[in-house]
Amino acid sequence: MRIVVLLKAVPIVGTERLLDAFRVDRGSGLEANGNDEYVLEAALQLTEQHGGEVTLLTMGPAGALEALRKGLAMGAARAVHVQDDAVAGSDARGTVRVLAAALGRLEYDLVFAGADSSDGLGGVVPAWLAARLGLPYLSYAARIEPGPGGATVRVHRISPTGFDLLEAPMPALVMGTQLLGEPRYPSLRGIMQARTKEIATWSLADCGLQPSEVGPAAASSEIVGATPPPPRGGATIVRDQPDAAVAQIVDFLASRRLV
């Protein structure tokens, strides 16, 4: 099974900020998006059990390299890094254009994506990409396995009461969640091996795209204002015995009309 994992390098959670032009600052401190590590883990387990290889694909700045190296150390075979000054500031549509074009140059049975990214929180890139590429789309996966016969993929899609067992022919795009399982830590051996693995760097032109199709120029919305919410903290601290403490909580909730 050849699996391409879409791995986004995001600002370290808790340190995100906007640049003056209201774009997300990707200049420093990037890490692999949490959800993408879950789908990577699932991809590695599938290829370990059923044969095949995992390719990482990312669109992002130079700083995304570290997240790719970690993915390679975890066990991916190779990585493709679409890096081009023109793609900075792309919205979801620009991102989909780039990822679709890059996938057009790769061979795969399955494409894996995370449920959402911690900086964008859109969660629409995977569905968009699948429809654009004409791939069956299986989302919110808690479990991914080969279907009977081997030409299909089966996914447990989380439902309000349990899961729906989905099946579709390959190639297909699967979007996955944390329920796929804890990602492994790279082993020392994995880290050593990763040094010799290939990271291909592709430009926009390599993907067959024009700069006008991506980046801020092609963005379809603009941020017109940004305000931090009122600061929190300065909490009232209660250290009384349980009964007295509870009386204080009730008074506090009543004062805010919450009980």
Binding site: Y137, G162, F163, L165, E167
Partner: peptide, 10 residues
């Protein structure tokens, strides 16, 4: 769009 079959609802 390509159809995805629900084999079973659990």
């Amino acid at each position: 769009l390509p159809a995805v079959r629900i084999v079973e609802r659990v």
